[in-house]
Amino acid sequence: MTDIDAKTDKYEQLLAEALDAAEVAAQPDTPLADAAADCQAMARSYLEDGRHFRENDDVVNALASFSYGHAWLDCGARIGLLDVPTEGHLFTI
């Protein structure tokens, strides 16, 4: 396994775990809750895209997709849209 393959595996797992851990922090039925849901949806889409790229042996775009997906969650957490664990390896906040 090459370094990029190992890194891609790591980032896919990180994104999948982060998606499971992130929860909407805003009151339901508000624009902020909608924005939080958008962050989660984008992250989920990038996870699916990354897996599609991976299945087609496009590891570079898979890694980029997993990274972008996590960035959506990290951003949502930093601006208070998503409630995420502050301990551990999933988020940098």
Rank of each mutant, 00 (worst) to 15 (best):
D38Q: 15
M1C: 13
A71R: 08
I93K: 09
A22F: 03
F66G: 01
L82Y: 00
A37C: 11
A62S: 02
L81Y: 00
S65G: 05
D57S: 12
D20S: 12
R51E: 10
N61Q: 06
A33T: 07
Y68L: 13
S45Y: 15
H52N: 12
P31N: 09
Y46T: 03
A62I: 02
W72C: 10
H70P: 00
G50R: 03
A21T: 01
K10M: 14
I93L: 15
R44S: 15
N56V: 08
W72H: 14
T2G: 15
A21P: 00
Y11Q: 06
D83R: 07
A33S: 12
D3G: 11
D20M: 08
V84R: 00
D34W: 09
D34P: 07
V60H: 08
S65Q: 04
A62H: 02
R51Y: 04
H70R: 06
M1D: 13
L63K: 01
A6I: 14
F53Q: 04
G88N: 06
P28S: 06
A21L: 01
L81C: 05
V59Q: 04
A25H: 04
L32Y: 11
Y46L: 08
R44E: 15
S65W: 00
A36F: 02
D29Y: 10
D5E: 14
A6F: 15
D57A: 15
G50M: 01
D3A: 13
L15S: 03
A25P: 05
K10I: 10
Y68N: 13
S67C: 07
R44A: 15
F53I: 01
T86G: 12
L82H: 02
R54Y: 07
Y46M: 11
S45A: 14
D9R: 14
A33L: 08
Q13Y: 09
A26V: 00
N61L: 05
T2K: 09
D5H: 12
A33H: 07
I93V: 12
L14A: 11
L90M: 06
I79Q: 08
T86V: 09
E48D: 15
Y46R: 10
L15H: 02
L90D: 01
A77W: 03
G88Y: 04
L47R: 04
L90R: 00
M1S: 13
L14Q: 11
A33K: 06
K7R: 14
E12Q: 15
A21D: 01
A71W: 09
A22M: 04
R51W: 06
H89M: 11
C75I: 10
V60K: 09
S45V: 11
G76L: 01
F53D: 05
A18M: 02
L15C: 03
M1G: 14
D5T: 13
A77H: 05
K7N: 12
A16L: 06
D57Y: 13
Q27D: 13
D20A: 15
N61P: 01
I79N: 07
L82G: 02
R51F: 07
G76F: 05
G88P: 06
K10V: 11
T92F: 11
D58V: 01
P85W: 06
A26Q: 00
D29L: 10
E23F: 05
R51H: 08
P28A: 06
L82A: 05
P28W: 02
R44C: 08
E23G: 07
Q40G: 10
D57E: 14
A43S: 03
E87R: 10
A35I: 15
D20C: 07
A64V: 11
E48H: 12
E12Y: 08
